[in-house]
Amino acid sequence: MLNKSSSKKSVSTTELKEIFATGLKLCIFMSVICVMLFFVNSITAEKIAEFESKKINDAIITIMGDDPNMTIEPLEDLGDSSVKEVYKIDSMVDEQSQLIGYCVYAKAKGYGGEFNLLVGLNADGTVKGISVISDSETVGIGKKVLTDSFLSKFNGKSEGVTLGSGDIVAVSGATVTSKAVTSCVNSVLDFYESTLKEADTDENNG
């Protein structure tokens, strides 16, 4: 018993050394790759962030109209998981700010993965317009949903939008994407009701 364990121990020390050596090599490979990624990231990170914010800015202007007095104020994260970012849109005239509406950057779960919509809301909480920020939906199927002819049907809607009732009808062949857009708009409207509306009235009272 004692002999066996001692012989096993002597084998395992050489094995241990080998394991340690291979592990060390793997660590070296990994650190080299990490250094490479660090350099590429330092070059591209700024460009990526710049592009993202430019895209959102452009979308806000398309939805809310190009008003030189318009101010865009990003609100801090308000704790809803489906809502990525919220922008408060005000009109500044003679240092008097008047609320135009909100733009909510939200994500939806489509057929080709997640896609991102920017939903513009009027001051009274109705939908002003929807713009697609990024998507990976299929050309010819899901992409048909993400065009103005479908998205503009949400304009003016305020609460509890359901697919198939009224003029909002799912695009045939693209039910998944149609449903995803509808539920995304609904979650934005819910978010307005539960969080933005309150914040707005609080501000007015204060």
Binding site: L37, K47, K55, G112, S136
Partner: peptide
């Protein structure tokens, strides 16, 4: 590396390839 490069310089392609 290619993922970051595409995101920075060809963002529409990057988002459609997902």
């Amino acid at each position: 590396v290619i993922d970051m490069i595409l995101k920075a310089y060809l963002p529409s392609l990057s988002s459609s390839l997902g």
